[in-house]
Design a protein around this nucleic acid. Structure first.
Lengths: 336, 336
DNA sequence: TTGAAAGCGCTAACAA
DNA sequence: TTGTTAGCGCTTTCAA
């Protein structure tokens, strides 16, 4: 398109200095006389010089690129994390390449970047460890051996859910599990058990189910075999599918059963009733992840996983039940 | 991490040939004796050689990277297009870097890639043209001068909407406009006028409104001043906001007013009632866009914009009205 | 069919 | 403070 992009040599000639001086002036202006820097700046502006980042990458071994590894950019949670990561990377002068799990493009991407941010649900643990050995890597919403990670405080989220549910008079809940072998699902289950003890709420598990509305709809059928007065779903999509299926069968939410999800995706507040759900600071998780990754790349020592706070967003899918078909009504229900 | 990645020279030594031969064997095996290729392949496997894409980019001027320019990866439409683009790029051996509108990271990204796919709603026309002059570029869901583009067939979509609405007995509709100065909005309006003529349906416009549920809720208030029996919204988010606001005011959809959107985002089928909407082949648009971009990069001549077919997805937000508060009921309504 | 040598645009010693 | 000189890892003439 353009004739040929001006190089550092063109600038050097135009400013009457050596190429190395231009390089220095551009990267460490302190090490070059002010007047020289000024002249070089002028030349740069005049010629419209833009440094070739690839040429620079060759000798330095640094590309200023980060990989965002996600199996599906279409997933709203992933997208939100990506957004945070992208912004944080941009601020630090890094650009981001997106890639999904193992495959040719993946290797290619990995070979190009200074580090990788790995979103949940992507590669298996083995691949993960191999990857982390190759390049600095940080996990988001997942833990694996000693790989640095940033995760949401699920345990606390579950506690908030239980507190909320217990306050509404629930004595037992059904947990609808997510995909089999999923790290976050295991986390949810541990948290559930613990929070259940703490608040004296019984819990049963069903699942696994795929993390989709279809999964949730399937779960509804299974739930009917052993109904409880409240359902905690692995994530919002399952919760939404559940609500749809229940409603379709004439079971009213929250009048007969309460439902809570995890994630606080956009659809959670669009559906009827609104979905009570645990909101994780997704963007921040992405941003914090990138910052840790950048530190790692700079060579600072790895600390333990970072835990980010979550909060319960109460909406219409939970509340006082008014009909006891699936369990006892709270004793104070009559007083309302 | 690893000692040092093996280079082409290591392979050359191990295979007992010159580096240039290795390069040739790897890129154009036909030009090298079969036995030599085999030896080189062996050496590659043994050493675990992976070519450094950046080093290759320097002499060739080709990075095998594409930029995906989108103002917000969090937007579901954008995400879907991205997904298609990413897959198509991966198939062709390209990786994708995501960047948003003008800014430092943007320039940095542009300097690194072989071409750019520009999603709707990002930079202004001037920036766009400047960008297209710098690098091969393809627009998605937007037209600008002679820049190659792939767009959804909005005109046909609007025709389908009108046909549907006319069949339901509507005689006038309100169009709720999207963001001011937005290319797609202009497109919708032209299409609306034309399809209105074709089917003998009156139309009024209100707006502009931001393409969010909040925008839709605001629009509901304005619509009440001059209600019509059907509303066509600029996009799904506005339509969803509209439905919520109407429902909140006790106006029933579709019993009193029909609503249709554009986009077919995931939430469209999750809300109650489901949103009737025009679905564009988002992923395919991304994929086709990338393929055109790749052609452009290879130097093939640019053709006109590619038009991709859309289809109307009928859901609960449209249907026979049963209450005439905002206009006459279809004459055959009683017969149902 | 293969090898030698000269870059691609930049950085990083080392001298001056 | 500045210039000189080698590369970074690969491709690509040009000769052999």
């Amino acid at each position: 398109m353009a004739d040929r992009a001006p190089t550092i040599y063109d600038v050097a000639r135009s400013a009457g200095v050596a190429a190395s001086t231009v390089s220095r002036a551009l990267t460490r202006p302190g090490r070059v006389a002010d007047s020289t820097v000024a002249r070089i700046r002028n030349a740069v502006d005049e010629l419209g010089f833009r440094m070739n980042p690839l040429a620079r990458a060759l000798p330095t071994g640094r590309t200023s690129m980060l990989a965002l590894i996600a199996s599906d950019v279409t997933d709203p949670v992933t997208a939100e994390v990506m957004r945070g990561a992208q912004d944080a990377a941009g601020e630090a002068g890094y650009i981001t390449v997106v890639a999904h799990g193992p495959g040719e493009a993946f290797d290619r991407a990995l070979a190009t970047v200074d580090g990788a941010l790995i979103m949940s649900g992507t590669p298996g643990d083995d691949d993960l460890l191999r990857l982390a050995a190759q390049r600095p890597a940080v996990l988001v919403d997942r833990l694996c051996a000693a790989v640095p990670a940033v995760i949401a405080d699920i345990a606390d989220g579950m506690r908030q859910v239980m507190a909320h549910l217990a306050a509404l008079g629930h004595e037992s809940v059904t947990y609808v599990g997510g995909p089999a072998g999923c790290w976050a699902d295991g986390m949810h289950r541990r948290a559930l058990r613990q929070a259940g003890c703490e608040y004296g709420v019984q819990s049963r598990r069903i699942g696994p189910f795929p993390a989709t509305t279809a999964g949730g709809m399937a779960a509804a059928g299974e739930w009917l075999h052993h109904p409880a007065t409240a359902i905690i779903a692995y994530d919002d999509l399952i919760a939404i599918g559940l609500i749809r299926a229940l409603t379709a069968r004439g079971i009213q939410v929250p009048q007969e059963v309460n439902v809570v999800g995890f994630g606080n995706v956009a659809a959670a507040e669009l559906i009827t009733p609104g979905l009570t759900t645990v909101a994780a600071p997704l963007r921040e998780m992405g941003a914090v992840g990138v910052r840790r990754l950048l530190n790692l790349i700079e060579g600072s020592p790895v600390a333990g996983p970072v835990l980010l706070p979550v909060r319960l967003v109460e909406r219409g899918s939970t509340g006082i039940r008014r009909r006891g078909r699936f369990g006892p009504l709270p004793s104070f229900a009559g007083s309302l």
